[in-house]
C-alpha cells in the first residue's frame, strides 16, 4: 500500500457546513473506496480557518501549491472565474440547492469554460457545491409586494445587489453577513437579502420579523479543486475516486442545505417571524424590472471566446427539464440580443 499525503485547505473554520461535511463525508468516503482495493492510502492534513489561507486566499493557495486540495469560494473571484457566476445572474429560476448544484456542475463538465478558468489558476476542477437554497428578503416592517421595496434601503452582498437595480429608489447597501443584524436593527437598512439558514444563525427574526418569500434562487459558491502539479502525480485510481466522491459530496451537501433550509424556516417562525408568500405576479414584476444580467454575463464570456450564450441556454434547459419553470427566461432574451 502506497501512502499519499494530501493537504486540504479552506479559509473558513471547521464548523462551516461544507468544511464539516468534507471532514465527515468526503474524506471517509475516499478512504473507504481506496481501502477496497488497498493499493493506496491517503494521509490527510486538514488545515482550515486561516491556518494557511484566508477564505479569499484558497484559489491562490491551491494555485501556488500551499495546499493540494481546496474548497474555493468562487463568488470572491468574479474576475478570475467569471463563468462561475452562472446561477447568480439567473435569479427567479430554481430555489433548490440540489438542482442548481447538479446543473452548474454538469455545465462545468460539458463546456470547457469553467475548467479552463481553473486550469489558468493551475488547478483541476472536481465539482461544484451549493450551500444555500435561496435568497429571501427579510424586513423590519410587514411586506407584501414589490412596491414595499421602493425607495428603501436593502442590505445585500455581491451580485444580488444588482437584483435591486430596477426597483424605483431602492438602494442596495453592501454588508458582510455578520453585519446584517445590526444594519437592520439600527434602521440603517429596511430589508436584508439572505438565505433562511443564515437568518436563523444570526437571529434575524429578532430585528426583521417579516420574510418576503421571493425565492430569488439558489446560488453556487463552492468548488472543490486540486493543485494541477499534485494532480498529475496522482495514480489514476486515486484520481477516479476523488472525482467520483466529489460528485457525491456535491449532492450530499446540497441535500443537507435543503434540510437545513426547511428547519431554519421553521425556526424563524418559531422565533416570532412571519413568512409572507410573494405572489407570482409580483415575482414576475420584480424579475422583469431587472436588467438582463444573465445576457450581460453571457456576452462577456462570448466576447472572451467562451460559449457564454450556449452555456446559459444549456443551463436554463437543464433546470427546465428538472421541472423548474423560470419566472423570466434569461436565455431567450440573450439569444435574441
Amino acid at each position: 500500500t502506497e501512502t499519499i499525503k494530501a493537504v486540504v485547505i479552506d479559509g473558513y473554520p471547521a464548523r462551516a457546513l461544507w468544511v464539516k461535511e468534507f471532514t465527515e463525508f468526503f474524506i471517509p468516503e475516499v478512504d473507504r473506496r481506496l481501502a477496497e482495493t488497498g493499493n493506496y492510502k491517503m494521509d490527510w492534513q486538514e488545515s482550515y480557518g486561516g491556518t494557511i489561507v484566508k477564505p479569499k486566499g484558497v484559489l491562490e493557495g491551491i494555485k501556488l501549491g500551499l495546499g493540494d486540495i481546496g474548497i474555493v469560494t468562487t463568488i470572491f473571484h468574479s474576475s478570475k472565474l467569471p463563468s462561475q457566476a452562472l446561477s447568480a445572474v439567473t435569479p427567479f429560476v430554481a430555489a433548490d440547492a440540489r438542482a442548481v448544484a447538479k446543473a452548474v456542475d454538469e455545465i462545468a463538465k460539458e463546456y470547457p469554460a469553467m475548467q479552463a478558468e481553473f486550469d489558468a489558476q493551475n488547478q483541476v476542477y472536481l465539482a461544484t457545491g451549493v450551500v444555500l437554497d435561496t435568497y429571501q428578503v427579510f424586513s423590519r416592517e410587514p411586506v407584501n409586494s414589490l412596491s414595499d421595496l421602493e425607495g428603501s434601503k436593502v442590505a445585500g452582498a455581491g451580485m444580488n445587489l444588482r437584483y435591486l437595480e430596477g426597483i424605483d429608489g431602492a438602494a442596495g447597501v453592501r454588508g458582510g453577513l455578520t453585519d446584517f443584524y445590526n444594519m437592520v436593527q439600527t434602521g440603517l437598512v429596511d430589508h436584508a437579502m439572505l438565505w433562511p439558514e443564515a437568518a436563523s444563525t444570526f437571529k434575524i427574526a429578532e430585528v426583521a420579523p417579516y420574510m418576503l418569500k421571493a425565492d430569488l434562487g439558489a446560488v453556487n459558491s463552492k468548488t472543490i479543486t486540486v493543485n494541477k502539479d499534485y494532480w498529475e502525480k496522482l495514480p489514476d485510481e486515486v484520481k477516479q475516486v476523488l472525482q467520483d466522491v466529489a460528485v457525491e459530496y456535491r449532492d450530499h451537501v446540497a441535500g443537507i442545505a435543503m434540510d437545513r433550509a426547511q428547519a431554519s424556516r421553521d425556526a424563524y417562525v418559531a422565533a416570532g417571524g412571519t413568512i409572507v408568500e410573494m405572489s407570482p405576479e409580483e415575482r414576475k414584476a420584480w424579475a422583469m424590472s431587472m436588467p438582463n444580467i444573465a445576457a450581460e454575463w453571457a456576452k462577456g464570456l462570448d466576447d472572451a471566446g467562451q460559449p457564454g450564450t450556449e452555456m446559459l441556454q444549456a443551463y436554463m434547459a437543464k433546470l427546465k427539464d428538472a421541472g423548474f419553470e423560470p419566472v423570466r427566461d434569461w436565455a431567450a432574451e440573450a439569444a435574441t440580443n
Binding site: 489561507v53 486566499g57 491562490e60 501556488l64 501549491g65 500551499l66
Partner: peptide, 16 residues
C-alpha cells in the same frame, strides 16, 4: 525542499 513554495508563502502573505 522547494524554494517555489517559500516564494508562494511570501506572495500570499504579502498580498493578503
Amino acid at each position: 525542499g522547494n524554494l517555489d513554495l517559500s516564494f508562494a508563502l511570501l506572495k500570499i502573505a504579502i498580498g493578503d
